[in-house]
Structures are given as structure tokens and as C-alpha cells.
Write a protein that binds this DNA or RNA. Sequence first.
DNA 1: TTTGGTGT
Length: 294
Amino acid sequence: MNPLRNLHLLPRLWPMLRRHPQLALLAVLLLLGWYAAELYYLRPQLSYLGTPQATTLHPATWSRTLRNDGFLLGYSDLRSNPLWVSYKLTPVAKDAKRLKRPQRFKRDWRTLTMVGHDDYRGSGFDRGHLAPNYAISRLYGRGAQLDTFLMSNITPQRPKLNQKLWQRLEEIEVDVFARRFGSLWVTTGPIFDGKIERMKSAMRVEIPDAFYKLYAAPPKKTGDAPQLLAFIIPQGVKGTEALDRFVVSVDEVEQRTGLDFFHILDDQQEQQLEAKQGGSSWRLKEVANRPGRY
DNA sequence: TTTGGTGT
């Protein structure tokens, strides 16, 4: 249920609050409790070592956290783009229920600009999922699948990137990495540098220059360090490139996005891990040239 | 099995 749809009930509450001011206190306490549950219980279940934090005062790096079934997302109403999306992958069971792909993408009523399916029509850009349909729907069910088709989870991607290189990455992360490590946290989003470019449709969605993908495999023993692997992939790829060409450090993603990832890591460990490029445990070479499906 | 487009 969308709480915004019930705003018209507010004026009717006023006379009641005047008679029983203690109700206002109760309402405030309930709101605080709900927000505390969001911050300390619900969001941590959908993110690893903290949600990405803006490191600049630039409003274009600010985002509102939207919680969905199976994934968490930081949305920028200024850019009409999600700035980060995080989800947890585990191996998909062979008998996981196959869910039909919805025909259309849906407007997300929680966003201010409420971008719709048709705002991307004729733009030359695909509606690119950040939280992927396949893995999320198999792991978390129909409700989660429908959430991945919300336009708040969508960003403009060139067809060759979306249908080729991004698809290869999405296949490898769940079929290879999640299987190998048992569980894998993914954080992904767009990168904007320099000049602001927007789509011509009414909602003027801003067009990213590149995209990042961060993989974090939690340590087997507590106290050990997680394994990290980071990519930056430009819009202009052909789609057939070897994936290892795009490996970067987490630090580089942080510089290009103005976000701080995994901020709960202890500072010394964070500095060491994030300066490094992905280690050998990913065995990326084995899959870097795996062909796409399309 | 996993990405999308168009037109109705």
C-alpha cells in the first residue's frame, strides 16, 4: 500500500489531535520506531557493510533509500536515476520457479518525477535493469520480480552494453560467483561525469556515461577480510570485450561516483581493500571471454 | 531459463 495515497485523511485527524494531544506523541514515537526499524533492521538485511554514503555536498550525489522485495536502492530525483542498488545473490536452485517476464515497466509512485515506460521510447536507449530480473525473481519470488520492473530500478543503457556485456556480467555473477562463494553481495549503479546530458522525453532522464558493479564475497571466517571485485564499464562498449579490461579498484569507483561504499569496514581494512584491484580468487580470466546469449 | 526493441 502506498502511504502517499492516504494523505487526504490527514485533515480529519486534526480535531482528534486537539482533544487528545498525547496521540501526537504516540504518532511521533511510532514514526521514530518505524524509522529505526528501517535503519537498523530492514535495510541492513538488503545491504552489505552499510549503504553507500554521499561524500560530497553536491546534491546530485544525494539519494533517497527505497526498500523493495529482494533489493535496496538509492534514488536521485534530480537525475531521475538510481545512484546505487544492492542485492544479495545465492546460487539459484535448479527447480526454482520460472516466472514470466512482465511486458511493461511500471512507474514508481515513490519518486518525484515518476518516469514511465514510455519516457524511454525512441530514445535509442534500453531500459536497463540494475537489480536484475532473472536472479532476483528466482531467488526472491514474484513480488521481488515486479519490483525490478519499477522504473526506479531502470537506467538508460546503450543496447550493446545492456544486451551483451551487462547480460554476460549478470549471468556470471549468479551462475559462477554466487555458486563459488555461496553468497555474493552486488552493488551497482551509474557514473556521471562532466556535462549533463538528458533524454529528450518529458521526464528528461539523465544519461550516464558509464556504470559500476561491485562484488563483495563475505569472508568464510569472521574476522577475515571480504573479497572485492570492481568494474567500470562505459556506455560505448561493443559488448564482446574481455571483462577483465574493465576491472578497477573500489577507490576509483568512489572517486567517479562521489559515494563511499562499505563504510562499516574498519578504516584500516577499508583503505587496504579498496585500493586493490580484484584478487585471484575471482578467477576472472576463466570467464572473461564467455560469449553472451544475444 | 537469464537482455531488450517496436506497435497495438
